[in-house]
Design a protein around this nucleic acid. Structure first.
Lengths: 130, 130
DNA sequence: CCGTATCCCTGACGATACTG
DNA sequence: CAGTATCGTCAGGGATACGG
């Protein structure tokens, strides 16, 4: 899980809360990542299996879905329940912490959709003035 | 502003609201982008000049700050006020639409910070089990 | 079915230099 | 001061193949 590892960050005197080294950034990045948003939205509706998520989201590669789920699981946001059966069955759901995150993220996503017309209008007006 | 332009997206039969082609994604991406979050947080406190933002955020290149501000301006989220003086003076502030976005994004950022200890603990526990 | 491993390419980003 | 232009890098992410 790379995600960040500044390594060679210039030591700045001030305690940089909003700088690149801010660790809460990583959480935000996982939750607002391209597929993270969609996964959380889906899991807000209830438990889902891997391939259910894959189909429901659509357009996500196995690799990215697995990577996204692992990051969210590691962060304690998604719970992974594996059943030792053949064929394998794994179910994903939100932890209590994850529900909080998912609600906020979904709220932001809803806001984006609701205000999309305004944004689109703003873009057109902006582009019209070159 | 590239951001997205699938171009060669496979035409899927279902109306894909959460798919890659979902246009509200672009708005979300602009406001939750690495520098977008920090810019909005800063502008929530009030109007700022370009170099004020640059210093306040820290670690952002001129190129990325300009790019971020342009995307947000085009989306009608940030207002750009240029004064025809020498030396140039440009002030950035939030539009009413931008305030809504900034509040939600800042709320999510605050959540991330407040729950960072929980996330970090979850990570350690997860890593301990390999 | 549920992933992991590998390859590879695009484009996001930083650094630098330059303009009005 | 407030950007634009150009270049080089390298990590994100898709495609594919394979494993338990």
């Amino acid at each position: 899980m790379r995600v960040t590892t500044p390594a060679g960050e210039k030591a700045s005197p001030a305690p940089d809360v909003n700088q690149a080294s801010c660790p809460s950034r990583s959480v935000l990045e996982h939750v607002t990542s391209r597929w993270g948003v969609l996964v959380l939205a889906r899991l807000l509706e209830g438990t889902h299996r891997f391939s259910e998520l894959r189909r429901a989201i659509g357009g996500v590669s196995e690799k990215m879905l697995a990577q996204t789920l692992q990051a969210l699981e590691r962060d304690g946001i998604v719970h992974r329940q594996a059943y030792p059966v053949i064929p394998p069955r794994v179910e994903y759901s939100l932890t209590p912490l994850g529900e909080q995150a998912a609600e906020r993220v979904a709220g932001l996503a809803r806001w984006s959709e609701q205000n999309l017309p305004r944004v689109l209008a703003a873009r057109e007006e902006h582009d019209a003035r070159q």
